[in-house]
Design a protein around this nucleic acid. Structure first.
Length: 486
RNA sequence: CGGGGCGUAGCGCAACGGUAGCGCACGUGCUUUGGGAGUACGAGGUUGCGGGUUCGAAUCCCGCCGCCCCGACCA
């Protein structure tokens, strides 16, 4: 019995991944369901993880010259409907306010599903000259998309995100900006969340409604399914034209600016959970972990307790000025009245990178037992070495998780050349599949209807490779990335 | 939006015509503490909402509401 009960309370990751995910989110106290259909409550531990990635991304956004702004939650119907493809794409997901102030509104207000329309409408007055460009805006907010089927963090009716909206004098500048946004997402995913991603372009069928083209980064979860981890769109002159934005260029010609938009959401909390977690629960990269190190005091007698408390106090003092890649060392001492074993499991479920056990034997020897979450590797270290060791080990751990994720992805990536092999691979192995595609949207639909796998992206780094489309055998110039996805 | 399931204590469940109970969690005391401690006592409920049948409804009937799971759309 001992040691069994708790872990068996989490669905087995290998057998029931969605159940595992749900259990971890709930039991690690990341989020709860709410009284509102399809909406979640983000709890303190989950919000702390979001804040960490949010702050890091915000630094990237500001470093690349963007300024934060805030636009209204409500978008008048007439504005949302100006861009035809945009409204058509979002229509089924828009929530409307039809009544307020005790009466029916003369014009419905959409609760923003995204802000292209209202931002374009406003900035048309800010943009007169090429000197006003580029205009690089970003906002952190909530949006609502009426989802029928929701999952905590991954897909909820309301979610938190960042949406950048930029306007440029030339198409090339806008294209560069699309790349800048995507690169920020790659950096946060890989360097902060330790999730390796593949950059690429979405197909016509999968692009953002109203965009000229869309790009995204794709990540692999531990069930080998794909997750779109951030998208960056080239809007061309579509929204500028429908909103009537124009500027006088150097050549004294009136032109419509080129726009971009890009977004990164709380879905990435879900990605972090699914990219690293194991049978015991979360595994958090040190950069986002709310607690990087948790100390578990161990004692029997009051004398032991006092000795251990003294040693921990001296340790905390000694670590006060220690900093890590993500700021001051986040160390937490768990003085709760629970048994050590309970605490070990409690913090493993919550994905804390390192645990320090300090008991009477350790105090006597001037040492601590340190246990690494990802593989439970247990070592003994002198207490006075920790100020130097912890930052180093946290950095190593961050790198280790990233490499582990790369290795996992590599082991679950396949290359196939025909439909028969493709279907077999999707069914038996899953994972990422690189296969030739002719570029025809009909072939794309055929594949997804037949197998459930979709073309995630046309990877930017796909080599030129002549082949034959796995659906209709027509010539293909490069492989695309296919997978079953969230 | 179609198909299925479920609403009883914070969570998981039982009671399926006779007025609500178990496990976990929670509170207090004592003993405990190096991988989910033991023990004693205790607190906690308009059984999702509204109507109906009945001497009597958590239980049967009708109508709502909500949530979960599976399919078509999405970050």
């Amino acid at each position: 019995m001992p040691g069994k009960g708790f872990v068996s309370n989490i669905a087995r990751q290998s057998e029931d991944f969605p159940g595992w995910y749900n259990d971890v989110v709930r039991k690690a106290e990341l989020a709860d369901y709410s009284p509102v259909r399809g909406c979640m409550v983000i709890r303190p531990y989950g919000y702390a993880i979001w804040e960490s990635m949010r702050d890091e991304l915000d630094r990237h956004i500001k470093r690349t010259g963007h300024q934060n702004v805030y636009f209204p939650l409500f978008v008048p119907r007439s504005l949302l409907e100006k861009e035809a493809e945009h409204v058509e794409g979002f229509d089924p997901q828009v929530a409307w306010v039809t009544r307020a102030g005790g009466e029916e509104l003369s014009e419905w207000l959409a609760i923003r599903p995204t802000s292209e329309a209202i931002i374009a409408e406003v900035v048309k007055d800010w943009i007169q000259s090429y000197r006003d460009l580029p205009l690089l805006l970003n906002q952190w907010n909530n949006v609502v998309r009426w989802e029928l089927r929701t999952r905590l963090f991954l897909r909820t009716a309301e979610f938190l995100w960042q949406e950048a909206h930029t306007f440029h004098a030339t198409e090339q500048e806008a294209a560069d900006e699309v790349a800048t946004g995507l690169e920020a997402y790659r950096a946060v995913s890989e360097d902060w969340l330790a999730i390796p991603v593949i950059k690429g372009r979405k197909t016509e069928n999968e692009k953002f409604p109203g965009a000229v083209y869309s790009t995204s980064i794709e990540a692999m979860m531990r069930d080998t399914k794909a997750l779109q981890a951030g998208t960056s769109h080239m809007l061309g002159q579509n929204f500028a034209r429908s909103a009537g934005i124009d500027f006088l260029d150097r050549d004294n010609q009136l032109k419509a600016p080129f726009g971009t938009s890009w977004g990164f959401s709380t879905r990435m909390v879900g990605a972090t959970i699914m990219a690293h977690g194991d049978a015991s629960g979360l595994i958090l990269p040190p950069n986002v972990a709310p607690h990087q190190v948790v100390v578990v005091p161990i004692f029997r007698s009051e004398d032991d307790r006092a000795a251990v408390a003294g040693a921990i106090e001296r340790l905390e003092t000694g670590l006060a000025d220690v900093s890590t890649a993500s700021g001051p060392l986040r160390l937490w001492v768990d003085w709760r009245e629970e048994t050590p074993g309970f605490k070990f499991n409690h913090w493993e479920l919550r994905g804390v990178p390192f645990r320090l056990e300090i008991g009477p034997r350790d105090v006597a020897a001037g040492q601590a037992v340190i246990v690494r979450r990802v593989d439970r590797l247990k070592e003994t270290l002198p207490l006075d070495s920790l100020a130097a060791e912890l930052p180093k080990r946290l950095a190593d751990y961050q790198a280790h998780l990233f490499q582990r994720a790369i290795d996992f992805r590599t082991a679950n990536t396949h290359h196939v050349d025909d439909m028969e092999a493709f279907e077999r691979t999707v069914e038996e192995d899953g994972g990422f599949i690189h296969a030739p595609w002719c570029g025809d949207g009909a072939c794309e639909k055929r594949v997804s209807e037949k197998t459930g796998a979709t073309i995630r992206i046309i990877p930017f780094d796909a080599a030129d490779e002549s082949g034959r489309c796995l659906v209709d055998g027509k010539p293909s110039e490069r492989r695309v990335l296919l997978a079953r996805a969230y």
